[in-house]
Each structure stands twice: as structure tokens, then as C-alpha cells.
Amino acid sequence: MTQHLDTHRDLHSDQGALRGEHPGRAKNPIIKVRDLAWLEFEKPDLARAETFAHAFGFTTELRTDREVHLRGADSGTVCVIIRRGPHSRFVGPAFAAHDVADVERLAAATGTLTHASPDSIGGVTVELVDPAGMPVRVVAGMRDLPEQPTQPVHTFNFGREVLRTNATQRPSREPARIQRLGHVVLQSTTYRRSLDWYLEHFGLIVSDFLYYPGQRERGPTMSFIRCDQGATPTDHHTMAMVLGPSDRYVHSAYQVSDLDAIAAGGEYLRERGFQRSWGIGRHIQGSQIFDYWRDPDGFLVEHFSDGDLFDNTLEPGWAPMTASGLAQWGPPVTKDFLGIAPGKESLRELRSMLSAVRDDNEFDLTRLRGLLKVTRS
């Protein structure tokens, strides 16, 4: 039986919107995308990237001297495309439209041209640029990859509900096989303008807004955004966007079968010397069981399972942003996850803070104080 909860009245959020606050959706979006298709990166060492990807749970769909395509077990498109480049960087996301007509409609509305996708993917693509200057693809008509085997969900004994007798529970210590790409989180110095751009162009809708404590009157500083498929429930967030001192990738998340896959897969990664950033725990916004890891190039990636699914009737929740409010249970949030551990990333972010407060963007001195308060909360 499907259980329906009014999650905006309990742990999901503290409260709904006040009069005049952001509605969390556009009145007349150009199109409504159906999902996040894949993410694109550049890295100088494809072999090293592929080694981690296999330990993390991806399967290689395509390998050439110039690029690697990584997929999950679910049918559909690849999850990640990595191209050889002089430096490690996140290039941008690709969203899946419902059909080619949507891609053509978006191209006409934005004054851009469509073009054929590479033969390895198929279909039609339009490439836009978001307010932060990041390329964003929208694609349709791609070649559909067949479903692959994945880890079976275990049979559990819950309290008095006994489903397993005379049988043991022995999850294999192996990579947590990725099922699909779940979401990407981006930071923007022009958060509100970027948020509105994605809602207006792609028909995304906000599940939750967060705001800096004491600064709610200035508007939200983070949003968890889902696809609008009407009465069909979709992931609590396909994309999340947060205000910050630089325009950058924060993390991406990939679904696996269950908690055992996350835990045993984490042991597999740990034994091979990879760095856990934070986990295992359960989030508040989205409810996912999570585990975060750093790949060899420093990118933050997440295993998750058991996330919330919302249809388009739920209005956004509102809650203050705090470091302790990132999880219902689990270890305390780490400095590495927050990006403030000593190292290259925190040094870059510190330099960005000093320059951002002098530039003409949404991250001013008051917002900086709010962010620093969040990291200490």
C-alpha cells in the first residue's frame, strides 16, 4: 500500500511560504523536461577516473582515447560523460525533454539551433547557456540503453513482520551498483536569477526552499527542485541550487538499491583507499539515505537510496539553512563536505568570498555573514 503523508507539516519543513514569497514555479514555462539525462566532466586522466567509477558502481558503456561514457543499470541514457581535458572541471548538465518537438520549441524560443547528438547517444540536442555562463543541453530521441542486472533488494524482518526464516543476510562487499543518476547540486553567485531561468525554461518546480537564519525577508538561498510530470511522482530534487561566492559544481548523486548496498559498497571503496566525505546518514529535505565520497579529482559524489517522490500538487516548504539540519541521523557533517576543510577547495572558496562581496552579484557582505553562521550552526 502506498502511504501518503503531508510531509510539509512535520520534519520535511518548518513552514510554508509567507505572502509574497517565491512561488517555486513559473506560470508559463517554455517546456517541461522529464528528467536529468547525464552530466559532463573533463579530466586529464581517463584511466584513473574510470578506475574510481567502477569501484563506485558505474559500468563503462563507451571508451575511446578521448572520452568515457558511464552508465547505471536502469534503462535509458548514460549517467556521466567524461572527456579528456587539460584540467579537471565540471562542464554542465544535460536534461531529457519528452520529445523532439519540445527541443525544437525551446530552440525557437531562445533563438538557438538544434543539432544531431553524437551517434553513440542519438537524438537531437539544443545547447543553452544559463545565467552563470554554464552550458546546459536539452536532448530528446536518444538511443535507449537496455536494462542491466543490479543488486537485488534484500528480504528484511521488520519487528513482528517476519519474511525471512532459516536464511541468513550476507550482503556482498562489492561496488554498490549504480541504478541511475538522481540529481546535481550547483552553487551560483546569481542564485535567484539562475533559479528563475531553470524554472521558466525547463518547467522545474521547487520542493523546498532554505534561507539563512535571520535573513528570510531577503529571500531563499537554496532550493531543491524537481521535474513536473503532473500526477506522476518524481524525485524530491533532480537539481538543487545554492547561493555562494562562486559558480561551481557542488555534488552529484546516484541511486543504488538499498542501505546494504550503500554500506557494503562504502566498505569496498574504503578498502581501496578512497576518501569518504560524509556519511552514512539520512537527509531531511528529500529523506535520502546518503553516503558521500571524493573521487581522485576531488569531485564530490553521493550514493543514495529511499528518496522522497512528489507529484506536482505539493507546494514548496520553507526552512532555515543550518549545517545540523542537513540530516535526521548520521555522523556530524564534516568540514570536507561543507568545503571548509584545509585544502585547495577551501582556499579557492575563501578567495571567491573576498572577491564576490566586491562584485555586482547576489552574494554581498550580509549574505557572507549568513553563510558563515550556517557553517558554524
Rank of each mutant, 00 (worst) to 15 (best):
H115F: 15
L11P: 00
T60H: 04
T221L: 09
G298S: 07
C79F: 01
T64I: 01
A240Q: 05
W293S: 04
P86T: 09
V333M: 13
F224W: 10
I31G: 03
A323H: 15
G307D: 10
W197E: 01
V357W: 14
S120L: 00
K373M: 05
G244T: 06
P233Y: 13
T155A: 11
D360M: 06
L39S: 08
P149M: 05
V139T: 10
P220I: 07
D74R: 00
E61K: 02
G219T: 07
L70C: 06
P29E: 01
G265F: 02
L18I: 14
S223N: 02
L62A: 03
D360F: 01
F363S: 09
T114L: 11
Q229P: 09
E349P: 00
D119P: 10
H201C: 07
R137P: 10
D208M: 05
I340F: 08
V136R: 00
L354Y: 12
Q148H: 10
G92V: 03
L350R: 15
G24E: 05
E67Q: 08
R63V: 03
L70I: 04
L39E: 07
P135S: 08
S324P: 00
D228H: 03
G182Y: 03
D6C: 01
G159Q: 10
W38D: 02
F337M: 06
R272M: 00
D235Q: 15
L347E: 12
D247S: 05
D74C: 07
P135Y: 02
H115M: 11
P175R: 06
I30Q: 07
F363G: 04
V184H: 09
T60K: 06
D144K: 15
N157H: 15
L354N: 09
D6R: 13
D45A: 14
H236T: 10
T189F: 08
E362K: 04
H4R: 14
T238D: 15
S207I: 00
L243E: 02
S75T: 06
A101G: 06
G370M: 08
E345C: 04
H12Y: 11
H183S: 08
G214S: 15
G265L: 11
T190P: 03
H303C: 08
M241G: 12
R164W: 02
D258F: 05
R34T: 12
S355I: 13
A26K: 01
A37E: 02
I262T: 05
Q215R: 15
V138C: 06
D6G: 01
R160E: 12
D35C: 05
A107G: 12
Y254I: 01
K43G: 04
T334A: 01
D260C: 13
P233K: 13
C79R: 08
L113V: 12
G133F: 14
L145S: 04
A261G: 06
V357H: 11
T366F: 12
H12E: 11
D306V: 11
D196T: 07
F56H: 03
Q179T: 03
C227Q: 11
Y211G: 05
D65R: 01
Q179N: 06
T60W: 06
D228M: 04
D306T: 02
P146W: 07
A108L: 14
K373D: 15
G339P: 11
R348V: 03
D336V: 04
L309M: 11
D364M: 03
G111N: 09
L269K: 00
G72C: 14
H98I: 10
L11A: 12
L46M: 07
R48E: 13
L113N: 13
A17G: 14
H236C: 15
S172K: 15
F158C: 09
L365P: 05
D99Q: 06
A47M: 05
R84P: 05
